[in-house]
Amino acid sequence: MPALAGLLVGAMVGVTGVGGGSLMTPILVMLFGVAPTTAVGTDLLYASITKMFGVGVHHGHGTVDWQVVRRLALGSLPAAALTLAWMHFSEASRVKDGFIISMVATMLIITALGMLTKDWLHGLGRKLRVGNADQFKHLQPVLTVLGGIVLGVMVTLTSIGAGALGTVMLVYLYPLRLNAAKLVGTDLAHAIPLALIAGLGHLALGNVNWTLLLNLLIGSVPGVLIGSLISTRAPLAFIRYAIAVVLGAVAVKLMLT
């Protein structure tokens, strides 16, 4: 069963760049009964390894904007490291599972709303980019780094956001520069170092189940390769709306448990 879950989620990640933490962490908690802190840590390492295979495909097709990746990482990687340090020194890693569940549910709702408003944000970004090009381009690097900081903190705490919220940020900040394929590839490339650093930090905190991780990878590696190959042909809008509805339903379920 974990391998099948890995296959399905891996395929979603390859196709849309979305679905790693936002789908896998709730699956681990709700279907497999994994402790929330362990689900977050295991999912982060799972996501970093899975997305490496997807990025290889996207890089080969020239659908990764490495300058944008560097800007995001400039904010997200230090933010992730500082969040891990705070968790270690304040013993926040030992917070009650109820807090983690609430954080995950909140992030799922934010992610679902972001996915549902993605087209509107893209239109707004395009309008600003065309109407006030010089100022918009001047602010792009700073806003991208700030977006990376937000992602670094939230992904480290919940394992959610690197894919879903990352694509929503990028579709607003780079409405002309990134087409659908480049949006997925660039977001995947940024998610790898972020998830890896956060995952290794959780490993040091004892929040990784190795047996579960290996079972997930057995399914996810072929899944993400298949998804990446068909990403330019998939009905991305339909898939995005479907995922958003599922995430909203899962969030409500988590809040009621």
Rank of each mutant, 00 (worst) to 15 (best):
H61L: 10
V104R: 05
A79H: 10
L7Q: 02
N215C: 12
W86P: 00
R177K: 11
I49H: 06
L44K: 00
D97Y: 12
D43A: 13
H58D: 02
L188D: 06
V250E: 08
V9S: 09
G6S: 03
K96V: 04
K182S: 15
H138S: 14
G148E: 08
V18H: 03
S93A: 12
G114M: 10
M24T: 05
H122V: 08
G10Q: 14
L72H: 04
K253N: 13
V15K: 07
I226P: 02
W210Q: 11
I192G: 07
A105H: 05
K118M: 11
P26D: 13
K96L: 02
T156G: 10
M24N: 09
A3R: 01
V221T: 04
P175Q: 08
G98C: 03
I160R: 01
G125P: 03
A105W: 07
R240T: 15
L7K: 07
T16M: 10
M87F: 12
L200Q: 09
T25W: 02
L183P: 05
L217K: 06
G17Y: 08
P175A: 11
Y172I: 05
V246W: 11
N215L: 14
I49R: 07
P175G: 08
P175T: 03
T111M: 05
V150A: 15
A35V: 01
L139Y: 13
V15I: 15
S228D: 04
P26V: 11
K127A: 14
L176N: 06
L121F: 15
H61D: 06
I218W: 03
L77H: 05
M103P: 00
G6K: 08
G206C: 04
P141W: 07
Y174C: 09
V130A: 10
P36Q: 03
F53L: 09
F99A: 07
V64M: 11
L236E: 13
T232S: 15
T257C: 00
L225W: 14
V95L: 11
T167I: 12
G125Q: 05
L23H: 04
K137Y: 11
G10D: 08
M107A: 14
L31T: 05
L183C: 06
S76T: 01
L113H: 06
L205E: 14
V184N: 04
L176W: 01
G56M: 13
L247S: 05
G60M: 01
L116S: 00
H202G: 02
G98Q: 11
G21F: 12
I243A: 08
A3Q: 05
V34N: 04
G227Q: 10
K51C: 05
V224K: 02
T111Q: 00
V34H: 00
V252N: 11
I239T: 03
V29E: 09
W66K: 01
L121D: 02
V40I: 15
M103F: 10
L72N: 00
V13R: 02
V250K: 10
L173V: 09
L4M: 12
K118V: 01
I110S: 04
K253P: 10
I100C: 01
G206M: 07
L44R: 01
I110W: 06
I109G: 01
A198G: 09
H122Q: 15
S102Q: 14
G227P: 05
M24R: 09
L196E: 13
G161C: 11
G17M: 08
L178P: 05
A191V: 00
T106C: 15
P36D: 14
L247V: 02
T156K: 12
G166Q: 08
L31E: 10
P222G: 12
G199D: 07
V250G: 00
V104Y: 00
Q67K: 15
